[in-house]
Every structure is written in structure tokens, then in C-alpha cells.
Design a protein around this nucleic acid. Sequence first.
DNA 1: TGATGCATGTAATCCGTTACATGATTCA
DNA 2: TGAATCATGTAACGGATTACATGCATCA
Lengths: 181, 181
Amino acid sequence: MAMNIRTLCLGILSFQEASGYELKKEVEDGMYSHFIDASYGSIYPALTQMNAEGLLTVRSEEQSGKPDKKVYAITEEGRAALAKSLAVIPAKDKFKSEFLFEMLLQQFISKDHMSRAIDKQHADLLEDLGRIEQMKKQECNCEDAGSKFVLGYGESVLRAAVNYLEAQYPRLQQQKMKAAE
Amino acid sequence: MAMNIRTLCLGILSFQEASGYELKKEVEDGMYSHFIDASYGSIYPALTQMNAEGLLTVRSEEQSGKPDKKVYAITEEGRAALAKSLAVIPAKDKFKSEFLFEMLLQQFISKDHMSRAIDKQHADLLEDLGRIEQMKKQECNCEDAGSKFVLGYGESVLRAAVNYLEAQYPRLQQQKMKAAE
DNA sequence: TGATGCATGTAATCCGTTACATGATTCA
DNA sequence: TGAATCATGTAACGGATTACATGCATCA
């Protein structure tokens, strides 16, 4: 079984009930943002399906000035399914970086393009770091050991990347300079 | 255009000619291993296709005691296509971690299972680090600035993850202990 | 008035993996 | 003798993304 969109939804819903839209937001800029992806096109069908299977319940919530939302909650069967999925030893982390690939192939790109790529990478890393710091400040999620651990892990790794990038930046610029002569 | 299997093959072949089998190996345990994935099922068709398009040339090489291999080499057109793909600012890094997801949902797993998951994560990280150290020792690839940068980046990030894991391990065990009481 | 956020959903498409098929050689 | 390495390839399948479709409210 292992990890897929279904397990992801069950996992988030085990903390709190939510709509499909809210789940997407959580994955996009919440606790899960830096190690998981999911789009509407996968979330909505998964919720409908799991509701039909009895792993979730739905309730329509009216909102003033906003469209109604379908709030999903996990059932006991859902919790059991989640536990079963988590009982598998997790697969190895997957890290995909077009940035590193491009850095490896420096010879094919201009100094200017490289600068822009590095700046973007730097900005992306800082953005992720900022999001983690914000979540650490909020008291809501930080009660449990799991959240603390995951936030700390992300922070360590991102910080290391930022530090490395900042330390190497001058060196890379120099080398490109020399190559241009 | 951006990054896909085609670009990946062109990129590796820009350093040295290789067979499909060798490309897979390079992606599996070489320089690219910790930030890129590719299987035979995607590599072989890509090579055939790009050869037909004139981005690559092939040559059959006989080997004693081993099957013949098809050695591919990049053409001028291939280099141009590669440069074009690299001219796009790289997409944001994608990091997927079932491990972190499982840590977040600690409450659903046993102390024993968690220990095994952490040990596996630790071993995976050390394996990647070991591969990087080995590549640093070899003189063959370390000439260019790109390789140095990429190896250093990987080393920094992986080292940070290992350190964090080792520092947090006792704390996590204690908490699971308390929870079991 | 035009962009952005809230909100749900479907269909086409892509991109790749997994499994299958084949076969020789070497090492334990 | 059985597993592992070298070596190439195809077909079925899966899993998710992208784009499309719709619509109201708010803010600049």
C-alpha cells in the first residue's frame, strides 16, 4: 500500500477535518509543503472515492459570501486504513533537482543565466525556511513531537543548503569570469 | 522544454559517450544519483528516438565475454538541443519523503516500527554520503567546477540530515517510552 | 474592471515505472 | 546450480498533473 494521495489525505484528516480545498492549501504552504505534492485533480477524486468506501464522512457547510464547502472527516475505518498504510517501512526519499543538474552542466549556460538560476534557488530555499519558522511560531501544531521533529528536520536541511549556496556564490562568479576571458 | 529523460541523457552524454546500460548506472550510483531518477524503460526509447532525430550517433561495440553494447555519442545538434533545454530557469526542487510523513503521524505506529524507519533513513543517508565521498576521491570527474559544486551541495545537505537525525534519536525514543506508559 | 481567493470537479494527457522477454558469462 | 552482472528492448499500467469548466465575492 504505502504512500499515495489517499494516505496523504487520511493523514491530514487524522489531525483535523477539512475540505479538499483546505487539504490542498495545507500541502501547499503548511506543514507538508516541503516534502509532499498534490493537486486538485488528484485530491478531489480521492476524497469522493474514500467517502464511498466509508473511510471518510462528508458534511456540507454553508458560508456567507463564499461557496459552500464539503468538510470531510476520517472514520474509524479510515484510521485503520491509515495505520495499515503506515505499517510499511517508508520508501527512500526522492529528491529531484533541475538546479543541480544545470549547475553540473555550467559549460552550456551563460554567466547571466547561472546567476539568475542561483538567485532563484536561493529565494526558493529562503521561502521554505520562512514558512517553517512561521509554523514554529504558531502554537497550534507544535504540541506534538512529530511536528517538532519534521519542522526541525526541514529547517536543518534547508539551512545547510542556504549556507552552502551563500558560501559558494562568490567562487562560482569568479570562475565564470575567468572562463569568459 | 526543461528537464526530462531526454535532457538527462544529453547531459550525461555531453561529458562522455555511453550505452543505455551505462547511463542507467551513472544515474543510479554516479554523480547524478541523489537528485535524479531514470529507468531502462525510459532511457532506451529516448536514446532510439534521439538517434533517429540526429541528436545522437550510435556505434556497436563488441566485447569479449559480454553482450555487444550500443555506444551513443552526442552530435552538434544534440548539444544545441541540450543548451536550449538548459536555457530555461530550473523548476523548484522536489523533495518527497515518506519518512517525514510517517514521523508526523507517529501516533499511528509502534515504537519498534519507528525505530526501524529511523534506522533505515539513517542508513540511506549514510549510503548517499558514502557515494559522494568516493566520487570526491576519484580524480576523474572532479576537474570541473560544476561537479565540485554539486558534490559539495549534496554533502552539506545530507550531512545536516544525518546530524539532525542522530541528535534527535534519543529524544524520540524517550517520548515513545513515555507514551507507552 | 480585472485580478485574486474561495470552492468543486472532470477529462485528456503525459511521463515514467514495472513487469516481461531474452541470453551469455562469471563467481560462489 | 543458482545468483549476480552485463546488455537491450517492449507493452501494459499507474499515478498524477494540466487544462478546462463554472461561479460568486472582494479588493485595488
